[in-house]
C-alpha cells in the first residue's frame, strides 16, 4: 500500500518535471541546433565561399551577360539503367 502510494507520488513528480522540462528542452535543442548549424555554415560554407571569392569562382550566374540566348546545352537522352539508380 505504502509502496504503491510512493510509486504514484514519484510518477506524479516525474510527470510534473517532464511537463516543465518539455518547453525548456525544446528551447535547449533549438539553441544547440542553431549553434551547430551556425558552425557548419561558417566553417563549411564560409571558408569555401571566401576562398572561392579570392579565386573569383562563382557558383551562380547572377551578373548580367550580354548573350543572345540563355539556353544551356543539356542534351538528355536514354541512358544505361545503372545511371538511373544514382541520386546525382
Amino acid at each position: 500500500m505504502f509502496s504503491n502510494n510512493m510509486l504514484n507520488m514519484l510518477k506524479g513528480i516525474w510527470g510534473a518535471v517532464k511537463k516543465v522540462m518539455e518547453p525548456i528542452s525544446k528551447v535547449m535543442s533549438g539553441i544547440v541546433n542553431f549553434i551547430l548549424l551556425l558552425l557548419v555554415y561558417i566553417i563549411g560554407i564560409g571558408l569555401v565561399s571566401i576562398f572561392a571569392k579570392i579565386f573569383r569562382k562563382h557558383f551562380l550566374q547572377l551578373k548580367k551577360q550580354s548573350k543572345n540566348s540563355n539556353w544551356d546545352e543539356h542534351k538528355v537522352e536514354k541512358q544505361p539503367l545503372e545511371k538511373y539508380y544514382r541520386t546525382f
Binding site: Y41, I45, I50, F59, R86
Partner: peptide
C-alpha cells in the same frame, strides 16, 4: 535527382555567404 538539387542549394549558399544563413538554417 536529390543530390543534384542539393548541389544547387549549396551553390546558392556558397555564392551568397553570409547573407543566406537563415535560409540555410531553415532548410538544412
Amino acid at each position: 535527382k536529390p543530390l543534384l538539387k542539393f548541389e544547387r542549394l549549396l551553390s546558392q549558399h556558397l555564392e551568397m555567404f553570409p547573407r543566406s544563413f537563415w535560409s540555410f538554417y531553415k532548410a538544412l
